[in-house]
């Protein structure tokens, strides 16, 4: 875990520097009452993150590089990474599709893609799950909760 912790610390430091950089473009009101300025709090947090990250690096340094007792990188295997990557890609693609084709088509497509991706063999599950899930949720939102779901800009 030690090596992982050092990587985590570095990622957090990069994040904090990004926040510090972005906080420069936060406007400051000229006639503000006596109190902290608008960008002040995020800046303080960024310094806090940098400080804690440095402590995290220091406390893990020995184990990671000197004694090397605990320097295994805890990460996920290639196979898992691929699965998770594809799983996320399907979701992101479906959200994009939803803008154009609307909720029903996008979600049927998403559920069907997952069924195919998960190698579901049973025909009735393969086709019924996407249809039932999507239409049930659609019906509840559209007619019971009165929340209109996206229709898709292609159908407007």
């Amino acid at each position: 875990m030690a090596k992982t912790n050092i990587i985590v610390a570095i990622v957090f430091i990069v994040f904090a520097i990004l926040v510090l950089f972005l906080s420069n473009s936060i406007p400051v009101s000229k006639d503000a009452p006596i109190t902290l300025d608008t960008p002040m709090f995020p800046r303080m947090l960024s310094y806090g993150i940098i400080l804690l990250s440095i402590i995290l690096i220091l406390t893990n340094w020995k184990e990671a590089f000197i004694t090397k007792t605990d320097n295994k990188l805890i990460w996920i295997g290639r196979e898992q990474l691929k699965i998770v990557g594809i799983g996320l890609a399907i979701m992101i693609a479906s959200a994009v599709v939803m803008i154009y084709l609307g909720f029903i088509l996008a979600m049927i497509l998403m559920n069907f893609s997952y069924m195919v991706f998960f190698k579901v063999k049973k025909k009735h599950v393969l086709f019924l799950e996407p249809l039932l899930t999507t239409l049930c949720i659609y019906a509840v939102f559209e007619y019971v909760l009165n929340v209109p779901l996206p229709k898709g800009i292609l159908f407007q």
Partner: peptide
């Protein structure tokens, strides 16, 4: 799991 995962993801989207 093969069913519950897509269902939960659909619920998350909606």
């Amino acid at each position: 799991k093969k069913i519950i995962v897509p269902v939960v993801l659909t619920l998350s989207v909606v």
